[in-house]
Every structure is written in structure tokens, then in C-alpha cells.
């Protein structure tokens, strides 16, 4: 699958798709989208890149093993649940900043939770796919 067109296209597609995935993630609270879909889109972006340029190239570009995204994501999601407990509220109580921000809307603990989901989904699906393509 080392076609020139795919190779060239993927160079531009990767950042574009990643940007798109972040966009989907952020708007999830107001419009269709969210951490799950965002994460999956990002995963597909990397898989596409790997198809075009070979797995080693993608892994070099990523610098870290995708598996590391899983604990990081889990930690963010968990901390966003713990955070309200600092204020004597039950685990996972929603908390928001007063003034809304464009695109995202109200900045709240739920957004951080969604970011955690996003990272875990990228991490686990890429771990699965990369491991399979690595082993013969």
C-alpha cells in the first residue's frame, strides 16, 4: 500500500483529522460528538498514516507508545471525579467555571472527564491495532 497519492494525502490528512477529532471532542457537550467518537477518529487518523507510510514511521512520529495514553487518560478521568471531593461534594459531582467559553461552552469537570475518555480510546484502539500489525 505504498502508493504515492496515499502517502502524500496522509501527510496532510493526519493533522487535519487530529484537529477534527479534537473539535468533535470539545463540542460533544452541545452537539453530536464527544470523547468516544473523537478518540476513534484520532485512532483512524493514525492507522491511515501507518497504512501509507509504514508502522515504524507512525511510531516515530508519535514518539510514545500509544499504551501510555491509557493510564494518562484514566488518571485524568479519575481526577476529574475526585476533584469535587476537595470541596466536600460527592464523587463525580459536576462543577463549572462561571463564564462560558466559545465552542466548548461552560468549562467544567465533565469536559476533563471526556478528555480522559478520549485519551483512553485512542490508547487502547491503537495498542490493539499496532500490536497486531507488529507481530507476524
Amino acid at each position: 500500500m505504498n502508493t504515492i497519492i496515499l502517502k502524500t494525502a496522509s501527510k496532510y490528512l493526519l493533522p487535519l483529522l487530529l484537529l477534527f477529532s479534537v473539535f468533535i471532542l470539545l463540542r460533544g457537550h452541545y452537539l453530536p460528538g464527544g470523547g468516544f467518537v473523537g478518540g476513534l477518529v484520532a485512532a483512524i487518523a493514525f492507522v491511515l498514516h501507518a497504512f501509507a507510510n509504514g508502522l515504524p514511521e507512525t511510531q516515530r512520529l508519535m514518539r510514545i507508545h500509544p499504551g501510555f495514553l491509557m493510564p494518562v487518560g484514566l488518571a485524568i478521568a479519575f481526577l476529574s471525579g475526585i476533584f469535587p471531593m476537595l470541596f466536600d461534594l460527592p464523587f463525580m459531582t459536576g462543577m463549572w467555571k462561571k463564564d462560558p467559553i466559545p465552542v466548548i461552552g461552560s468549562l467544567g469537570s465533565a469536559l476533563f472527564f471526556d478528555i480522559g475518555v478520549y485519551l483512553v480510546v485512542i490508547g487502547s484502539s491503537l495498542t490493539i491495532l499496532f500490536t497486531i500489525s507488529e507481530t507476524k
Binding site: 468516544f36 490493539i128 497486531i132
Partner: peptide, 17 residues
């Protein structure tokens, strides 16, 4: 269903492997 779709991906991957 959204939850189920994502979870079943994990399950399928594991079963395939």
C-alpha cells in the same frame, strides 16, 4: 448502545487475537 459499541470493539479485538 454507544457504550455497547465501544465495549464490543474491545471484546472483538480480544476474541480475534
Amino acid at each position: 448502545i454507544l457504550t455497547a459499541i465501544v465495549i464490543s470493539f474491545g471484546l472483538q479485538a480480544y476474541a480475534i487475537i
